[in-house]
């Protein structure tokens, strides 16, 4: 069979589309399990409760390369009652770890803002560890229009 120019073009477009669609399935994306494991490692096994922590993320992120994320935890931030650290996890990235903030009573408040990369639409989880060992978490679903992992 001899290919016309038109057919050849159509074929190559089809192949490209397949290759693009094939990416998420062939890559080892982080998943809920890996995220849960990361949470356990961070908390030392304690199950996180809801409340006290607020995760602010856009509902829809047009560009997955820079998604602004804010996290704040209610705490007096005094000498013996403060937020030790807050970890950010993204369950749809190749690796769930994003960033871990460490606070001290000198921080004044346990709030932090940064910009993160999200490969696709996914849940962003923030887990806070208090100085007394209590653990709180919050989750937000962020819809990503253009993924940000250079795929």
């Amino acid at each position: 069979m001899k290919l016309t120019r038109r057919q050849a073009l159509a074929l190559s477009f089809g192949a490209t589309t397949l290759a693009v669609l094939g990416v998420p399935t062939t890559r080892a994306w982080a998943n809920t399990e890996a995220t849960e494991k990361a949470i356990k490692e961070f908390t030392g096994g304690a199950a996180p409760e809801a409340g006290r922590i607020t995760l602010d993320a856009p509902e829809i992120a047009e560009n997955g390369n820079t998604v602004p994320i804010s996290v704040s935890v209610e705490s007096p931030m005094s000498g013996d009652d403060y937020v030790q650290s807050v970890t950010l996890l993204a369950d749809g990235n190749p690796n769930p770890a994003v960033a871990t903030f460490h606070f001290t009573p000198l921080s004044g408040t346990a709030t932090a803002t940064t910009r993160i990369r999200l490969a696709k639409t996914q849940n962003v989880v923030a887990v806070a560890k208090m100085s007394n060992g209590a653990v709180f978490s919050d989750t937000k679903l962020v819809k990503v229009t253009i993924g940000g992992c250079g795929g």
């Binding site: 390369n65 820079t66 998604v67 804010s70 993204a90 990235n93 690796n95 770890a97 994003v98 960033a99 871990t100 903030f101 460490h102 606070f103 001290t104 921080s107 709030t111 932090a112 803002t113 940064t114 910009r115 993160i116 990369r117 999200l118 940000g148």
Partner: peptide
């Protein structure tokens, strides 16, 4: 304040605290 960063932090890392 301190932060451990993973590759999922955007280029030109920005922090507000």
């Amino acid at each position: 304040f301190s932060c451990d960063l993973a590759p999922a932090v955007s280029a030109n890392p920005y922090f507000e605290f």
